[in-house]
Structure formats: C-alpha cells, structure tokens
Simulated assay, not measured.
Amino acid sequence: MNSVRKRAGLAAGAAALVGAGLVFPAVAFADGSERAPAAQEEARPERGKAAEQREKRQKALAEALAKDLGVPVEKVNASLEKFRAAQREERAEIREKHRKDREGKRPDGTALRQKLANRLDQAVKDGKLTREQADAILAAAKTGVLPGPFGGHRQQSS
C-alpha cells in the first residue's frame, strides 16, 4: 500500500511538473555542465533525516521523469537542479526587492516620539496618567528602553 501511494505521489508530481511546462524546457536545454549529482552529495554536509527523505523523493521523481520522458536520469537531474537554482535566484531577487522597498519607509523616530508625547499629554488631561508617569514613559522612549519605533534601536550596554 505504501509503495502504491509513493508511485501515485510521484506520478502526480511528475504530471504537475510536466503539465506546468517546467520540465520540458529544462530537459531540452540541459547541457550537463553542472557537477554530477554524486559530486553534489559528497559536497553536502551531514543533514537530518528530513533532508535525506527529501533527497530520496527527489531522486525517485527524477527517475520516474527520466523513464516517462525517455531521457537519461543524469540529464533530468541536471535539468531539475537548473530549475531549482533558478527558483533560488528568483526568491533571492524577490527578497532583495522587498528589502529595498522597505528601505527608507521607516517612520521617523522623532515624529513618533512627538506623537507619543501628544497622546500622553491627552492621557494626563483625561486623568488616566499622572504627569510623572507620562514623563517616565517619554524618558524611556528617548533612551531606547521601549521596544519598537518609539525608542529606535536599543542602546548597547557596556
């Protein structure tokens, strides 16, 4: 029963890859210039059981695809590795874009502290805080004791 599920999973995975058109271009353009899969395995440090299981599934997928497509397993492995490398590069580019998008959009700490001061003044007027409590909160914000943008980065203690 377990092997039937594995085969069904492999077939579904292969069909999804082939159906999405992701494997054929990669197989067609594989030139074998990357390191062989055996050399890649030797270069990898020791990893956990989950990584070993993932590698077994990927190997089984490559073998099933090679059989279905009628190409050597090495060519499928090389194509899949190219595809994975392209995915990693794309994810890195997306992370870099998001990092650049966030750059410069951080609120000004001075403006936020002024907004905090205004809210604390209102709380004092409403009788929710004493002036001493409000002053203590402002002092904490100015010295960086409060987390978040009010105090900016925490100061390093020496």
Rank of each mutant, 00 (worst) to 15 (best):
V4A: 14
E93Y: 07
A43M: 07
Q58V: 02
E52T: 09
A38T: 07
P72E: 13
G9K: 01
E55L: 06
L146I: 05
P37T: 11
K115D: 10
G70W: 09
A78E: 04
Q155M: 05
T130C: 10
A39D: 15
L112G: 02
L65V: 06
K67H: 13
E41A: 15
A15M: 08
R5A: 08
S33G: 09
R57I: 05
A51F: 06
G151L: 00
R57P: 01
N77Q: 15
Q58P: 00
S33L: 06
D126F: 04
L129Y: 02
M1Y: 08
K125I: 13
A86F: 08
A134Q: 02
T143H: 07
Q156D: 10
R91Y: 08
D121H: 03
F150R: 05
K49V: 12
P72S: 12
D31F: 03
G151D: 01
E96W: 08
Q122C: 03
K115L: 14
K56L: 13
K6A: 11
P72I: 04
A15Y: 01
S33C: 05
A64D: 08
K82L: 07
R119F: 07
L10S: 01
G152D: 02
K6P: 00
G151I: 00
L120C: 02
I137F: 01
V23R: 00
Q156Y: 00
T110W: 02
V145N: 03
H98K: 12
A12W: 04
E34K: 00
S3F: 07
R102F: 13
N77V: 08
P147F: 05
A51I: 04
E96Y: 04
S158W: 09
E81I: 05
T143N: 12
M1T: 14
K67V: 06
A78V: 01
R99W: 05
R57M: 07
K67T: 12
Q53I: 14
I94N: 11
A11C: 03
E46A: 15
L10Y: 03
A15N: 09
L146C: 04
R47M: 05
V71P: 03
T143Y: 06
F24G: 10
K125E: 15
K125H: 14
G148P: 02
A38S: 14
L10W: 01
G48A: 04
L10C: 05
R91C: 05
Q87L: 15
Q133H: 13
D121L: 03
Q156P: 02
A14K: 03
R7T: 05
A36T: 15
A38D: 13
Q156W: 00
P72D: 13
L129T: 06
G151F: 00
R47N: 08
A16R: 12
K49D: 14
E103G: 04
L116E: 03
R113I: 02
V23D: 00
A50W: 04
E34Y: 00
K56R: 14
A26S: 12
A50M: 10
P107F: 08
A64S: 09
G32N: 10
G9S: 11
V27P: 01
G32D: 11
F24S: 14
S33W: 03
L116M: 11
A16E: 11
E90L: 10
D31R: 13
L22M: 11
Q87H: 11
T130R: 06
M1V: 14
A66K: 06
L146K: 01
